[in-house]
């Protein structure tokens, strides 16, 4: 398919990019383009100016210090997969990135794009929510921070306002006794997600803190406070996880489509949430 007419600019710096984005309505940042180009082919969005930020070195760095990470928005999935720093402190982030679509898409697609083109089936958003990540948003007037669980606002809608870009994503250290888990039920071996869950569990025998994020159960990934509360203070066991997952129910109203009914997705949300928590508990001692 073919795009509608569009203008293009490739600024040399972040401030120039912000200026270009503010210059006219219908300006949009283009990074790896692995979602946006498809959107443009479908001619569903009215983009008039593409601001190519994919080569901005300021957005392409990975910083690690004392277990925490700051990943530039234009770092590709493949770079995340292969980064020794990320593999060391947040193996799960590398692993999830390594399962995004295919090698070609991982070579172009960026973590920023995965978040900003907020499709409910995207891989990284639920994980970033579970890990308590912070989204660093840059505008002409400065940098502001938004927690990952408040970043996603709707289909293709995020906390990034016109004239802003997502600059980087900060992921805190997992810390002592914490583990993370991730589970997806997908069409076929690893195609489109039917439902996803990510979890972070902290504690030693007893769960002190639990964060459970679910995706493809609504327009945006969400934290499931009911399941989190059910886990908190309980034993870090598979049985406890199973019981806590029962908290997922009528509160969710996932869409029905060719891959499952609303009720099937609800049930599967329980399954993948439990599996993610099981993994988080198991990895607790291994630092994620």
């Amino acid at each position: 398919m073919l795009l509608a007419s569009v203008d293009y600019t490739r600024p040399a710096t972040v401030p120039e990019a912000l200026e270009a984005l503010a210059s006219r309505e219908g300006a949009a940042p283009l990074a790896g383009g692995q979602s946006l180009v498809n959107v443009l082919k479908n001619r569903v969005a009215s983009v008039e100016l593409l601001v190519d930020i994919s080569r901005l070195e300021e957005l392409r760095s990975i910083e690690a210090s004392e277990g925490s990470l700051e990943i530039g928005a234009c770092v590709t999935y493949d770079e995340i997969d292969r980064s020794p720093e990320i593999r060391a402190g947040h193996e799960i982030v590398s692993r999830v990135a390594s399962h995004i679509e295919d090698q070609q898409i991982r070579n172009r697609g960026t973590i920023g794009g995965n978040c900003c083109l907020s499709d409910p089936t995207n891989n990284l958003p639920p994980l970033l929510i579970a890990l308590g990540a912070t989204m660093n948003i840059q505008s002409g007037s400065g940098l502001r921070q938004v927690a990952a669980d408040e970043f996603f606002r709707g289909y293709f809608l995020t906390a990034v306002e016109p004239g802003e870009i997502l600059r980087s994503i900060s992921i805190p250290a997992l810390g002592e006794g914490a583990g993370a888990g991730y589970s997806t039920l997908s069409v076929a071996s690893d195609s489109k997600a039917i439902v996803r869950a990510a979890a972070l569990v902290r504690g030693n025998g007893t769960i002190d803190e639990a964060r459970v994020a679910l995706a493809v159960v609504g327009p945006v990934p969400i934290r499931h406070s009911g399941m989190e509360e059910a886990l908190r203070g309980g034993a870090a066991t598979a049985d406890a996880a199973r019981e806590a997952a029962e908290a997922i129910g009528e509160d969710l109203e996932p869409i029905a489509d060719a891959h499952g009914s609303t009720e099937y997705r609800r049930q599967m949300a329980r399954v993948v949430a439990r599996r993610a928590v099981d993994e988080a508990i198991a990895r607790g001692g291994e630092n994620g």
Binding site: L185, V187, I194, H259, G260, S261, Y264, Q267
Partner: peptide, 8 residues
């Protein structure tokens, strides 16, 4: 027979 149908 996608997964949901097998589940059913």
């Amino acid at each position: 027979n996608p997964w949901f149908r097998i589940h059913e």
